[in-house]
């Protein structure tokens, strides 16, 4: 009577889950490729030109940076709703400080964002308050702060150095785009190859286990909020430098755009599973939809109002979410760990 003792679970469903995860990740990628090909075929040269690529990536970079920070936060099982306000704060601070030079402006914007991250992180890890509400409160408060600093009107950068930051480009891509791609590469490497990255996923997967395994849960959780704040501040700097100003509504609703991008990328909102590069795909995909609508209207054959943009984004999110639900259901079907 030899009974199998350590049967490695139920093999087939397990494999299916992984297949599902892969399909889901690549699903976003496949959709992106299809849309790019579609755009190139339909709008021809205009779509494929360097100008569109440059303005598209430059524009997307700001959302990308915010979404990258959000990815790390969500992977720990948390959320950061304050990023939109932090974008505004970062932009305003950068513009104010840029009177003293470009670099101080850049650093000050990022530092301001990181400072908000520190505040969020302290409230969440030291006072043990729920991230959703803490960052909701800082969303309100930081927008108030940004507006106060700007004197309740748009903050306008002095012409010159600061605006150059938004216009500089390298090999046809704006500096913001390079920053985004670099940030994503470093982020992906950090997630995969450093203990810090592994800790983030472990905390999101099972925070109690992470604590008992002796992981520095507080420190790591704190760090993702600081990172998210700093990246949002950085996005604010680019926003300010590209537009030459930061208006009172800057960054409003960006937190939800970022969350949508993260989810579309396949990161589970419950934490523990995620991929940095998939978020990049998610951001590009969502922005590309907007870009295509602009082109479609430019063609003048049919007129899709820009209001459709949000509807399409919502529909997209719906599809992705339903896919995720299927995935999670399969996982729980593979066995209920006690």
């Amino acid at each position: 009577m030899t009974t199998t003792v350590t049967t490695p679970g139920r093999t087939t469903p397990g494999r299916r889950v992984r297949a599902g995860l892969l399909l889901q990740r690549q699903g976003a990628l496949i959709a992106l490729v299809i849309l790019v090909v579609f755009g190139a075929l339909r709008y021809g040269e205009k779509f494929a030109t360097g100008f569109n690529l440059s303005s598209f990536t430059g524009d997307t970079a700001k959302y990308g940076l915010v979404a990258l920070g959000m990815t790390f936060v969500i992977m720990t099982g948390g959320i950061d709703l304050s990023v939109g306000s932090v974008v505004a704060l970062g932009g305003v601070v950068a513009i104010k400080v840029s009177d003293h030079g470009l670099l101080p402006g850049l650093l000050a914007g990022i530092a301001a964002g990181a400072a908000v991250g520190v505040l969020n992180g302290l409230l969440i890890t030291k006072l043990k308050l729920p991230p959703f509400i803490v960052t909701l409160a800082t969303l309100l408060a930081i927008r108030g702060l940004a507006l106060t600093l700007a004197g309740t009107r748009a903050a306008v950068a002095a012409p010159g150095g600061f605006q150059k930051l938004g216009n500089w480009s390298l090999l046809g891509l704006p500096v913001a785009a390079w920053a985004m791609f670099l940030a994503f590469l470093v982020g992906a490497a950090a997630l995969h190859y450093t203990p810090w990255g592994r800790q983030i996923l472990a905390i999101g997967g099972n925070v109690d286990a992470a604590k008992l395994m002796g992981l520095p849960v507080v420190r790591t959780t704190f760090s993702v909020y600081v990172l998210s704040g700093a990246l949002a501040g950085c996005a604010g700097v680019f926003l300010g430098s590209q537009n030459g100003s930061v208006d009172t509504a800057a960054g409003q609703g960006w937190e939800l755009t970022a969350i949508a991008a993260v989810v579309v990328g396949g990161t589970l909102l419950t934490g523990g599973v995620g991929s940095v590069l998939s978020t990049l795909v998610g951001v590009l995909l969502l922005q590309l939809i907007f870009n295509l609508i602009v082109f479609e209207n430019g063609k003048g054959v049919i007129n899709i109002s820009s209001f459709w943009e949000s509807v399409i984004r919502g529909a997209f999110l719906l599809v992705v979410v339903l896919l995720q639900v299927r995935l999670v259901k399969r996982r729980s079907a593979t066995g209920r760990p006690a």
Partner: peptide, 11 residues
């Protein structure tokens, strides 16, 4: 393979 693929005993 991820942990959830395995039985409680293996875990």
């Amino acid at each position: 393979r991820p942990m959830y693929d395995y039985s409680i005993a293996t875990q």
